[in-house]
Amino acid sequence: MAASCLIDETSSQPTISDDDLIKLAKEELNEIPEKRAEDVNTLRKRIQKHPGLNIRTDDAYLLKFLRASAFDQDAAYTLLLKYFELKADEKNKQLFTDLRSAAVKHVVESGVVGLLPHRDKQGRRVLVLRPGKLDPSQFGPPDIFKASFMLIIKLAEDEETQIRGCVVLYDMKDMGFGQMTHISPFYAKRSVMLFQDSVPVRFKYIHVVNEPAVFDYLLALAKPFMSQQTVDKMLVHGHRLEE
């Protein structure tokens, strides 16, 4: 992926027109085309009543939160607040400073974070993380978080992905204690938040392959921050890549 196109949160109008996508959106997301404008407006009015919540309220922006929440107004509103709070939290300031493609180009080029060029059999985009490729002398968890966040937000702009969702592939090949020692509970928690109720993307599954001996330690570090729903989405395959 070219680093120059990692992120673009500019306003655009929703333009879904594919019959299969419309059907899928209705079946999985409870999205009714005739009610879409009304649903977006309901969420917009609720946001406008929230003091201090200074965010975009255009149709395209709000629609992705509704789709990520299966058009549940309360869930969409809560997701939007969590997304806003994640970015506004002073403790996370370092993670949301200098969100430019050029600032994380080295992470993408290293292969630690990226997107597969093709969709899976269900038409979902695949976000790939390869922590074993991390050279701690070159960069660390903050840069990985930034690159992951920017890719996820880019995914959230795509209407087909909003509807079909996406999957995460953790390829743990070559990961050892050299990388593990740089992952603190702080970064473990923030990383979990990226895939759990804090960004407007529907993560269908989290596949883990080639897990090393340190995987149990890594899971023990992250699991206290994981909901049962996230745990249920995690599928550990070992070296059986044909699965």
Rank of each mutant, 00 (worst) to 15 (best):
K105E: 15
V201M: 01
Y187S: 07
L95D: 02
I163D: 05
D174Q: 12
P142K: 04
T78P: 00
K223M: 12
Q162N: 10
V167F: 05
E243S: 14
L81D: 05
D58V: 05
V209H: 02
I206N: 07
V167E: 03
S110A: 15
T57E: 01
A188R: 03
I153F: 09
S148H: 02
G140A: 11
K91N: 14
V236C: 05
S4L: 10
A2Y: 06
P224E: 11
S184A: 06
Q162Y: 04
V208H: 06
R36G: 02
L115F: 07
A68L: 06
K82Q: 13
V113H: 01
I153K: 13
D18E: 15
L221P: 03
G140W: 02
G52F: 01
L127D: 00
R240V: 11
D174I: 02
K87S: 06
V107F: 04
V208I: 15
E243W: 11
G114C: 10
V168P: 00
G238Q: 10
G178R: 12
S110V: 02
Q122N: 14
V107I: 13
I153E: 15
D72T: 08
E34W: 06
P14G: 13
D20S: 12
V192F: 10
Q138W: 05
L235E: 12
Q138M: 10
N30A: 12
V209A: 01
S69E: 00
H237W: 12
D158M: 06
E31V: 01
D8A: 10
A70I: 05
L21M: 13
H237M: 04
P131C: 11
M193T: 01
Q138H: 10
F215L: 09
S148I: 01
L53H: 04
R202T: 07
K93N: 10
L221A: 06
V199D: 05
A68S: 14
V113A: 03
M226A: 12
E85R: 12
F186N: 06
A220I: 05
V107D: 03
T57W: 00
K35R: 14
L155T: 03
D232N: 15
T161H: 09
K87D: 06
G140L: 12
F215W: 11
G111L: 07
D89Q: 09
E243D: 14
K133R: 14
H106A: 03
K189L: 03
K154F: 02
G111A: 09
K121V: 09
S101F: 02
L99G: 00
V209Y: 01
E159V: 06
S4I: 09
Q48I: 08
V112Q: 00
L221G: 04
T10C: 09
K105I: 04
D8C: 14
V209I: 13
I152Y: 02
K45E: 14
T10D: 11
Q228P: 01
D197L: 08
D197M: 07
R46A: 13
